[in-house]
Design a protein around this nucleic acid. Structure first.
Lengths: 150, 150
DNA sequence: TTGCGTGCAAAGGTTTTGCATGGCA
DNA sequence: TGCCATGCAAAACCTTTGCACGCAA
């Protein structure tokens, strides 16, 4: 399997993604079907155990790690939870460079299209010598709805 | 032991903090000496094992949980690390709130003490109705060193 | 003296690894 | 066919918990 990414006038970038196995398809298919929601490794394994393609927990971990490396999934930790959360990004995850806001209460993800945030990215690059990857960076906090409920 | 907090014209708040033990002093003293940097439970235990007041790992965990509850420490997770990070805040509670920058190449974490970032937090709160949790938010990207190497 | 804090050991969970087997290309 | 991926089991961790003992107040 080969994923093809269009570069910025620098031609084509091919990334080897390894063999195509039904286990990998099952994992990626489930993650994509979650539509932005996250799942833990054990949740994925439990779900797949109820399908016609059950996948061993170690394979789940190994595939998740690989998919994170390929940029198809994102891994993060939610405070108070010892297990890692995985979320589907998709192959177009590179496209529009913008940050995300994720509510720690309801789990909702909002796209932040904002000049101020873009300026901060430039500021960090110039003043702090750090090139921020906006796609992978998520602002955690609480959305308006959840703030009002508490 | 009783900590006294000055309220906003609402008088004095006293918080019971339990017994004063040398183990608690050792943990809190070490955290305060880190000057805003973070440490994991095992790092704390390892450090104290080399002093004249070694502290058992379970006591470290129990004290850390208590100190977080008292607001003297802050707990958060950094992606790619399974263990929790603890950070000294101090009795004024205001000091150390800042974002983190994590390099996707070398894994290094840098503390971002930056007015521009603080302003963005205020902007997002006002204009996007989202209360950003700076402590849990990590900017991913590439640090200067790794940018130069590639 | 009372009861909380401590340390040890064990348990519970998550994640990683070794190794033989199975399956993709 | 040549490797890579898989699955099982075991190991390696991180964190929590039970229990007897020690120590602060």
């Amino acid at each position: 399997m080969t994923l093809i990414f269009a570069g910025k006038g620098r031609g084509i970038v091919k990334r080897q993604t390894g063999y195509n196995t039904k286990q990998k398809d099952a994992i990626l298919g489930y993650m994509a079907a979650l539509d932005g929601a996250h799942a833990t490794a054990s949740e994925i394994a439990e779900h797949l155990a109820g399908t016609d393609t059950p996948v061993g927990i170690s394979t789940v971990y190994r595939q998740l790690e690989r998919l994170v490396g390929l940029g198809l999934l994102r891994r993060y930790y939610v405070d108070g939870n010892t297990s890692a959360c995985y979320q589907y990004i998709g192959e177009d995850g590179r496209g529009a460079e913008h940050f995300h806001l994720k509510c720690e209460d309801c789990g909702g993800v909002v796209h932040l299209k904002c000049d101020t945030a873009d300026k901060l990215k430039g500021h960090i690059m110039r003043e702090h010598a750090f090139h921020v990857n906006a796609v992978k960076t998520v602002f955690y906090g609480r959305c308006e709805k959840c703030l009002k409920q508490n």
